[in-house]
Design a protein around this nucleic acid. Structure first.
Lengths: 195, 195
DNA sequence: TGTATTATGTTGTCACTGTCAAGATAAAGA
DNA sequence: TCTTTATCTTGACAGTGACAACATAATACA
């Protein structure tokens, strides 16, 4: 009953989201258009309108789902590490963060897009706030002296910045990625200790 | 003699760059088009072709000039601070970095664009490498134990990330910007000390 | 000087885009 | 069964980047 195909063409909304993510993974962002997504889903160019009024709404929903998967991935990583110290959890989340950004680079870019390709739908706002809350909690668990929000901003800035610089190939070629990442995560932890 | 207006319409190339920067400052990035820039410069829609084969080339040159101004701004800030310690210089550069990204947000976004709006022209590569070298030197001057390049990546990641999160309004509203920035810069310095 | 060459700018066209309006179709409700 | 409503298609419009053909003016060269 939760599987009802309510209307005459099946769940186009879902298909559009999947086609959109697939397009983002396959081709340069500039080529991902509403019409291209409709083409991939096998419907006419105006069909998406009834599910997503504008391209921004579709992208916004893709980003929102990105945040959901993102939070799940970080949660899983934090819970898998042993021993379960606050510091270990934060490190595990950092690694998972960088991995997520790399594996889902187009969606990740969308999630933090500079331009306004995404409409700030309630769902997107909600899921991105969840991600923020998750990080804030992880930092608060460290029980450092200062304001945990400021510490969380520091962590987020660094990891986000590294993810971006990575994806735009701004890493000096003579550095090994692994060394950069591990040292960065370590410096985050020592930096935060002086909050 | 360096002021020769070599061809029959004056230095259109320069005018296009200025019109482009102006457009970036005035309107959302998505609306900045080759034709809009040509319009602003008062020429036909295909006139830019002879100076910039594609829109990406124009944007690339705007980004390259952005990097030039960027390096100059950080240099000026570092040289103005007293006393002239390596740590003070790095802090001053960090503040100047965040200010530049805020004041020139559209150009800054272009300079680190995720999508490939910018063609990677030799000039853009050159100027961006200059910026990297400037930062690497500032970190090396701290004479910390580890690899200075890795330290520079850490600094860049954090400041870049903070600039991005700021410009996409990802700061928790209850935090004051100044506190976030100053604490972040401080944590960068203490983090780097453990490199 | 006068002519040829080259750099520059214009006009016109193409395929493509996002969005809207009007019509067709099929599901749901009376 | 008939009506209503949600969904999808077709067709249109203004806008885009890029290209080709052409016009014009500055330069190079005879």
């Amino acid at each position: 009953m939760s599987e009802t195909k309510p209307y005459h063409h099946g769940d186009l909304r879902e298909q559009l989201l999947q086609a959109g993510e697939q397009a983002l993974a396959e081709m340069p962002m500039a080529q991902v258009s509403l019409r291209e997504i409709a083409r991939k889903a096998g419907v006419s160019h105006a069909a998406p309108k009834h599910h997503f009024p504008t391209l921004g709404d579709l992208m916004g929903e893709i980003a929102a789902r990105g945040f959901q998967r993102f939070v799940a991935a970080l949660d899983e990583a934090a819970n898998s590490i042993t021993p379960q110290t606050a510091e270990n959890r934060l490190l595990a989340m950092g690694r998972a963060y960088l991995r997520f950004a790399e594996v889902n680079s187009a969606v990740y870019t969308l999630m933090f897009d500079q331009r306004d390709s995404c409409s700030m739908t309630p769902h997107l706002v909600e899921t991105s706030l969840e991600a923020w809350g998750q990080l804030e909690n992880a930092v608060a668990a460290l029980r450092v002296s200062g304001n945990a929000s400021i510490g969380a901003m520091f962590v987020w800035s660094t990891v986000h910045g590294l993810a971006m610089l990575k994806s735009t190939h701004r890493l000096p070629p003579h550095l090994t990625l692994h060394a950069v990442e591990e040292n960065t995560l370590r410096m985050i932890v020592t930096g935060i200790a002086t909050l």
